[in-house]
């Protein structure tokens, strides 16, 4: 008789494992133009393990409490850059922020990133952001014939712009910039970071054009070095440093 039985179940029951769940209040900035012209805060108390991420909390709300809650997320692992939002007043990726790290004792405020048009709840219109990205020509520009093999580059040359290759275009930096909040004509940190990635690439020959674009009145000279972008970057890119390097390149090119 080898029938599996469950007769040991009572013995196996642990004495008293404390529940990992705690009650956290998510205070979310809701906006739905189909209901009201005003945005307002709404509280959602949820039972969740504090070792979970803010994104898991948002999923829990959307799947179990209020299906109308709207936010972007794709990969949910900090690579696609879809779920940048303003959590407790700071731009972060919801999928890289653990609840235990942002004081779950108090309500956790979550709102859309600033400086971009809010379409619904946490979803913003990213078009102006990507327009600035397109305007710096974020692609390899070369002259002459294509080589028959790959374009070689030394490790040192690759290292020069390594930091700015990490950008995932989540807009956390650009939407943390006080200059961008008031004037969307400013290119913003993300576009400058992606220009930096090509300007300092030894294989690229469009650096002059990009520098000329960023030399304009809405380019790098509007940066106030408040370092909000460096603090906000979920990839740890030294954004302000990259902007300063572009400024330095412009000045050394001129003098």
């Amino acid at each position: 008789m080898a029938t599996p039985t469950m007769d040991k179940v009572d013995d196996a029951k642990p004495a008293a494992v404390p529940s990992p769940y705690i009650t956290v209040t998510f205070r979310i900035r809701r906006f739905n133009p189909e209901i009201s012209a005003e945005a307002e805060w709404q509280d959602f108390p949820i039972e969740i393990d504090p070792k979970e991420r803010v994104l898991d909390g948002l999923h829990k709300i959307k799947w179990e409490t209020d299906g109308t809650l709207t936010f972007r997320r794709s990969c949910a692992h900090g690579i696609c850059g879809s779920d940048a939002m303003r959590i407790n007043g700071k731009n972060r990726l919801a999928c890289k922020t653990l609840i235990k790290d942002i004081n779950p004792e108090k309500p956790i405020t979550i709102e859309a990133i600033k400086g971009l048009t809010v379409l619904k709840d946490l979803v913003v219109d990213m078009d102006p952001f990507f327009q600035a990205y397109r305007d710096v020509m974020p692609f390899l520009i070369t002259k002459g014939n294509e080589p028959t093999r790959e374009r070689l580059q030394s490790a040192e040359d690759r290292e020069r712009f390594d930091d700015t290759t990490k950008c995932i275009l989540c807009a956390a930096c650009t939407s943390s910039c006080p200059v961008f909040w008031n004037d969307g004509q400013y290119f913003g940190p993300a576009a400058i970071v992606n220009a930096h990635r090509f300007i300092f690439d030894s294989r690229d020959e469009g650096g002059e054009q990009r520098l000329e674009i960023l030399n304009d009145k809405d380019g790098v000279w509007r940066c106030r070095t408040t370092f909000n972008c460096t603090d906000a970057c979920p990839r740890g890119i030294e954004v302000t440093k990259a902007i300063q390097e572009v400024k330095r390149a412009l000045i050394t090119r001129r003098f």
Binding site: P33, A37, A39, K114, L116, T117, Q131, N182, G184, Q185
Partner: peptide, 14 residues
Amino acid sequence: APVIEAPRARTKKT
């Protein structure tokens, strides 16, 4: 309702 627009947004015509 009108969406909450950001000031001076960048467009193709910038």
